[in-house]
């Protein structure tokens, strides 16, 4: 049987530059925040192209607001298209979130009401994104501290509907899933079982912290802490269900440990996927 070519990488942060570039033998791919380069001067965009010449790059959007009844601004899609043309990433992605409404920027990746209207809005937005950028984005589930008001279906159903009815694959953020399942008391393994496994193409790993009053604690996805054990267990679960290649990205936005420590977390992720793949092979045999 041919080995599945999974890729494991880190989010590009300036403070991690030396660590990443010194360990490209152990880092297969780098994820770059696309929005940082939308209005960047030409030399910075060219530097990104140089980075892409050293290692595969995937672009990650944070400001398009795909999961909204409001159409994504054409200007932003044009910026993404130009950046993709310049950098030639292996893929690009965006969140299933809304970030603005009525001309007001929320300043946050907010979970929209999970309803037919937002499913339809997201699908339209994803089609426009594909037609302008040329490639459909992977879409990412977001974490939320409140159950979105106005929802008439659960998150797994909502995400599955969008993925099935669009051409976009799923970037499954396992810490977002872990945080949501903890905060809203649902089974994350059941969530993974219900979403279309053949459409999961990428994974985000991150860490978080507990927040709020002791009697009403919430798990916050903050990208400032190590990946907790339950997230690796979920990754193994994904590995056991998904047969297509996965791109696994460890996101860390601050409180940076030594690069070795981040790479060890990547190695744990490799091991988790390998265990999952082995389970899948054993079940199929």
């Amino acid at each position: 049987m041919m080995a599945v070519l999974d890729r494991f990488g880190l989010g590009w942060r300036r403070k991690l530059a030396l660590g990443i570039l010194s360990n490209l033998d152990r880092i297969d791919i780098v994820e770059v925040i696309a929005d940082d380069y939308f209005r960047a001067p030409r030399p910075e965009r060219r530097a990104l192209r140089t980075l892409a010449a050293q290692t595969p790059v995937t672009l990650h959007g944070i400001s398009l607001g795909m999961a909204s009844c409001v159409p994504v601004e054409t200007k932003r899609l044009d910026q993404m298209a130009r950046l993709c043309d310049e950098v030639r990433p292996v893929s690009w992605s965006e969140h299933l979130a809304f970030v603005r409404g009525g001309g007001v920027e929320i300043g946050h990746l907010a979970a929209p009401p999970r309803s037919e209207a937002t499913v339809d809005g997201a699908i339209l937005n994803l089609r426009r994104a594909r037609s302008i950028v040329g490639v459909a984005p992977e879409v990412e589930n977001v974490a939320t501290l409140i159950d979105p008001p106005g929802s008439d279906r659960d998150e797994a159903t909502w995400v599955s509907e969008i993925v099935r009815q669009s051409e976009s694959d799923l970037l499954l953020d396992l810490h977002n899933l872990h945080a949501n399942s903890t905060n809203f008391h649902f089974d994350p393994v059941d969530y993974i079982a219900r979403i279309p496994a053949d459409r999961i193409s990428a994974i985000h790993l991150a860490g978080g912290k507990w927040t709020g009053r002791p009697d009403a604690r919430r798990l916050l996805d903050d990208h400032l802490h190590d990946v907790p054990d339950p997230v690796y267990q979920l990754l193994e679960e994904v590995g056991a269900r998904v047969t297509n290649p996965l791109t696994v990205i460890l996101e860390r936005d601050g409180n940076f440990p030594p690069i070795e420590w981040l790479i060890e977390q990547l190695d744990r992720a490799r091991a988790a996927v390998a265990r999952g793949r082995a389970r899948h092979r054993a079940a199929a045999a």
Binding site: I33, D35, D36, R39, A40, I62, G107, D222, D253, G254
Partner: peptide, 18 residues
């Protein structure tokens, strides 16, 4: 960079995520 958030946290809420 011009708008370097250096983070995948969206545009943040007036000073960083988390």
């Amino acid at each position: 960079s011009s708008c370097s958030s250096g983070s995948s946290c969206g545009s943040s809420c007036g000073g960083g995520c988390g």
